[in-house]
């Protein structure tokens, strides 16, 4: 029942995204037909293209036919050069997801490092690093690392489609920039949670039973401290998508952010709608995965859902 309720919630959320993106892009005052044909085309030619694009139809009718297509997972073709929206967004999303995945791995490794610092009572190092990471604006850290990479990093060539193994190495510096903020936030959360749980009765009981400090940390405290961190991690995912837009431009990565900006400037409505809707779908799926993870880590959540 709970799963059904959540599925209906997420489906309605996705349909809301579809409606919102449609209204948003159709509210933009510029004429896409003119944007496609440029400033030199005659008004007659522009009007004829407008009709072919279906832009002469009333907005509700345009939305109904669009929704019908979207529900069949058909996002149409680009206004600008007739590329298939699914194919284009799919390719770009793959690159962006790879970038986000690498940055998440980096974030988790860093969080692991923070926990180790806690275990060895040297949390001050983690706090200092967190302070540095959180103080660096993405624009600054991105530009700095991009310039350093251009000078000293050997893997500066990207095939554009993750077809070479060096492409993953190319993504390391931008993924690091992307990971800086989540690293600082998540490590701070895990540190605070550990401190909070450390004073619980069961921790005292475990210590009284003769378990070492490290055993208590790894076996008891961490499991309880994990839920808030997972929730925070889930909240970071949409932020990571937003941050990639800047980072992709800085590092010349042909991901979804670059596509969004070029499509926006060209008034390529089908592409823009496809990006927002498919991006929204990915974020919703990520949330769903995290919701499934919570009861696995903490069975109390499962029983409260059942109630």
């Amino acid at each position: 029942m709970h799963v059904l309720q959540r599925s209906i919630y997420y489906l309605s959320l996705w349909l809301g995204i579809v409606l919102f993106s449609f209204i948003l892009f159709h509210a933009v005052p510029t004429d896409p037909a003119r944007a496609v044909l440029g400033p030199n085309a005659g008004e007659e030619q522009v009007q004829s293209l407008r009709i072919r694009m279906g832009l002469d139809q009333p907005l509700p009718k345009q939305f109904t036919s669009y929704l019908t297509e979207v529900l069949q997972f058909n996002f149409g073709t680009s206004f600008v050069d007739n590329r298939s929206v699914q194919v284009e967004v799919g390719q770009k999303l793959k690159v962006t997801l790879a970038l986000i995945a690498i940055s998440l791995v980096m974030t988790l490794l860093y969080v692991g490092m923070t926990i180790t610092f806690e275990a060895f009572n040297i949390a001050i190092i983690g706090r200092l690093l967190d302070f540095i990471w959180v103080s660096l604006p993405t624009m600054f850290s991105g530009l700095l690392i991009a310039l350093l990479s251009a000078h000293y990093y050997p893997f500066t060539q990207f095939s554009g489609s993750l077809s070479r193994w060096t492409d993953l190495l190319f993504l390391l510096p931008p993924a690091f920039v992307l990971a800086l903020y989540p690293m600082a936030i998540l490590s701070r959360i895990i540190r605070d949670e550990i401190a909070k749980v450390r004073h619980s009765q069961f921790v005292l009981a475990a210590r009284a039973n003769g378990l070492s400090k490290r055993d208590v940390l790894y076996q008891h405290i961490l499991r309880n401290a994990m839920i808030p961190m997972l929730a925070a991690l889930a909240n970071q995912i949409p932020m990571l998508f937003t941050s990639t837009f800047i980072i992709e431009i800085m590092f010349s990565i042909p991901g979804i952010g670059s596509l969004l900006i070029s499509s926006l400037l060209q008034r390529d409505f089908p592409m823009l709608e496809g990006i927002v809707i498919l991006n929204g779908l990915v974020v919703i799926l990520v949330y769903m995965v995290f919701e499934l993870l919570y009861p696995i880590i903490d069975p109390r959540i499962k029983s409260s859902n059942a109630e």
Binding site: L143, L147, I249, M250, S252
Partner: peptide
């Protein structure tokens, strides 16, 4: 394709 001018120069 190198979008950032400084990086292209580098």
């Amino acid at each position: 394709v190198i979008k950032n001018n400084q990086i292209r120069l580098a």
